[in-house]
Structures are given as structure tokens and as C-alpha cells.
Design a protein around this nucleic acid. Sequence first.
DNA 1: CGAGCACTTGAAAGATTTCAAGTCCAGTGG
DNA 2: CCACTGGACTTGAAATCTTTCAAGTGCTCG
Lengths: 238, 238
Amino acid sequence: MQATIQRTEQRFGNAAAQRSVLRSAITPASRDALALLEQFGTTISVHADREIHGQGDAAAYCYRIVTGCVRTVKLMEDGRRQIGEFLMAGDLLGFDALDTFDFAAEAVCDVTLRRYPRRMVDALAESNVALTRRLRDMTSISLRTAHARLVLLGRKTASERIASFLLEMAERLPGAHDHVLDLPMGRTDIADHLGLTIETVCRVLGHLRREGTIAIERSSITIRNDVALQQMASELRH
Amino acid sequence: MQATIQRTEQRFGNAAAQRSVLRSAITPASRDALALLEQFGTTISVHADREIHGQGDAAAYCYRIVTGCVRTVKLMEDGRRQIGEFLMAGDLLGFDALDTFDFAAEAVCDVTLRRYPRRMVDALAESNVALTRRLRDMTSISLRTAHARLVLLGRKTASERIASFLLEMAERLPGAHDHVLDLPMGRTDIADHLGLTIETVCRVLGHLRREGTIAIERSSITIRNDVALQQMASELRH
DNA sequence: CGAGCACTTGAAAGATTTCAAGTCCAGTGG
DNA sequence: CCACTGGACTTGAAATCTTTCAAGTGCTCG
């Protein structure tokens, strides 16, 4: 199982490959390790904009997103907001928490989740080496994602951030066929994820549309020129 | 994939109190778990500005910083640079890596490291539950640190970033007694860590000095008013 | 059909960066 | 021992990018 992850990781340097790695968490073998948990799982539904867990809550459960989209949110005193990441179907939430969450998780749209008691996860991890290893690798992958975002937020321009975001969504959104992205999140969420204002997000998207790089229809964006987007995204040196 | 263990920018509630909480993550028991590795360790020295490992290198070793300061670096094609974090004596590096590093690690000043073969770490982890658990928690803590930095880079102003940085250093620098910080890193490193330019770093520091909040003597900064700094840092809502 | 909300777009304001000089030491060589 | 040189750090002024403030559009829902 770990072999699968490692093999994928070899394709380093190719930005697209790198991104997909971050989400390809569910390989056949690793699904087996996680499958042990299934018997302890409960399926729950959460409506759009409802909280799944709050910032500072005890980490009593872990989750797997079955359908829909979830955002992880940190709020500052004055209301400034940072969305750490968007989680899509198949993504996991809370498996790498300590005993409390340091961010809230909210449903972006109506979502279905599979929920597992954390102490079952911990108990199983104690006795199952494969699962343990799997959990550690998953957390490492989350960390790698976070580090890529540090570069995005610390060093990229607004256009580069938007381009990177669109390319990431093109790979991660379920059914993003033919370069058509049905974005579940609004412009405000995108802005709070990319460290921009909603106006800047709109302006950059508008610019890309006028250039012919993308087409926009409300929440659906079609990538018309992904080479242009990739150049604009300025990925890391390799 | 940074491997800072005992530190975290955990920011709920009283930021200072919270920070020390995670420091105590290194309990006697957990130190014992890591102590198993000691027999496989080698001590090495690296001169200032030399590379410890490159971006993309196979993760053959893990490290513990014995003395000095290390920076983790990501470079973009055009030379823009992001420093993920600074590691101080006692911090760990590479324990949460996958099979390659996605960032370089460089000595900020002359450093002494203790180096452990990764496969020994993995082998021990397979058979030792305490160590395994310890590794997972360490990675989770790194992740929490990274998330706090996402807020800093995505939503804080230049002054807030500098204030947060100084407060973090006040806690993490070995021997930061009496609010005197001997910063091992230069202004350029600080800028590349905080997503700013060197000029902005200088200007904000100069402003704080003129205000009487800090005093500056080359690489040594004295905090004269830490309440002012804490207010300026704008920590997270709790 | 009107209200409300999300999204757009324009114009002015503001924060940070860029460009350009300096200043201040530490180390070097005379 | 002292002047000199290079690098790190400061500081000022103009340029630039993004935000803020303001309006306006368009769609959805009641």
C-alpha cells in the first residue's frame, strides 16, 4: 500500500502529477486498511453552510466525505477568514487531528459523510500496522499539501493563485470532464482560500474570460486553454 | 513535510499558554520512544548556508537539530523563495516526509545535527507502537503549525506577521531570556518566511523600534513591550 | 413581481513592493 | 592599527498590485 503512494510520488516535478498525488489517498490496498473502520461508521448528512465541527472542538470523530464539498475554516477575531482546504468526495477529514480541531469544518453544499469514532480509529491503529502506516502517510500528504499552499499564499500573485486553484479543481472535482468545472464553492470561499478579496477573484476570472482562457457560467467554469493556465500558475522549480 | 515537533502555532485562547501546552508534547515517555533511534544516529556538522538535503531528494535520513538553526526552503522557477519554517535545537526534520522531500533544508548558521537512517525509523515504527504513535502525533503537530501559517500568510498584514514572528521566536529560541532574541536568521530569511520583502521587514521593525515596542542591535532584538506585540499579532478567535 | 443574494465592474485609496541610495559593521590587507 | 571593501541592513520615493468603497447586474425564491 505504501508502495503505491511512493510510486506515485516519484513523478515529482510534474506539477499536475504532484497535485493528484495529494488526493489519490484512496488506493485499493489502502482502502483495505481503512476498510477495517467501516463497521464502526455512521452515515450522516449536513446541509449547506452548516458546521460539521467547530474550531476548538474535541476531535471525537473522523469523517470521510461521501458526496458534496467541505471547507476547513479558521476565523480571526475581526472576522477575517482563511479556508485551509476544500474536501471532495473520497477525501478524509480529522484523521490527522490531535485531540482537538484547530479549525472548523463546514459543508459548502449539502454533503453526505461517513463518520467514525476517533477512539475506534486509535484502537485499531494500535493493533494494525498497515492502518497505522496508512494514517501516518495520509498526514504526511496533508502536510505536503499545506506546504504547497504556503508558497501559493506567501509568494504567488493573484493571477497565479487563481490559475493554480482552477488547475487543482480540474483534477480534484469529481466528474470534471472536458475541462468543465462545476465549482461547489462561491467566490467568497475561493477568496478566503486564496488569501484574496472576492472582488479580486472576480476581476481575475473576468480577465481570464476576456482572454479566452476560460469560460464562465455562474458556478461553472470551462477551461479553454489549460496550457495558458499552467504557465500562469508558476509551479515550483524541480 | 516539516518535522518540527514540539512547536505549534496553536492559536486558540491564550496564545502563550496554548503554545506551552504543545511544548509538553515531549513527555518523558515519548522521548523514550524516540530514544530507541539513538543507537542508529550519527552526528554531523553543516556550515552556514550549506544544504542539508535538496528539494526532491530521496528522504534517506531524518535529522534532529542539536545546535544551530535550519530553514526549509521552496524555490520557484523565477527565484521567488518561501521558507516553510525555521528549526531550532531539539526540533526534528524529515520524520514526516514521504519518500522524497518536497523542500530543501539548509543551515542558517553552522549547525550540528544528529542523523538517523529512515529505514531504521520505519523498521522501528513497525514494531514499536509507542514510537509509531509518537511519529503520527509529531506529524499532526507539524500540520497544525502549517495551518497557523496559512492564516498568517493568507490574512495577516505585514505588521501582524512580524509581531507573530517575534513572539514565536521569543518562545522557540533557545535562551531567549529577558525578552532578548538573538535571531540566527537574516532579514532576507525572515522576509521569505513571512511572504514579505526585506525592505518591508526592515520598515516594520524600524517602526516597532521607534514606537518603543522593541530595541534592535543588529541581529539581536529585545522585546520591550510584549503586550503591544501580542495585540499587534492578531491571533485567532477562540 | 419584488427582495435578496451572489457576482461584476469601476474608481479611489492603501499597503507593499520596487528602485535607489545610503549606513553600518566585520573582516582583510597594508 | 587603520583604511578599505563587501555584505547586511535601512530608509526614501515612486510604482504597482490589491483592497476598499460604491454601484449595478442578474438570477432565484417567495
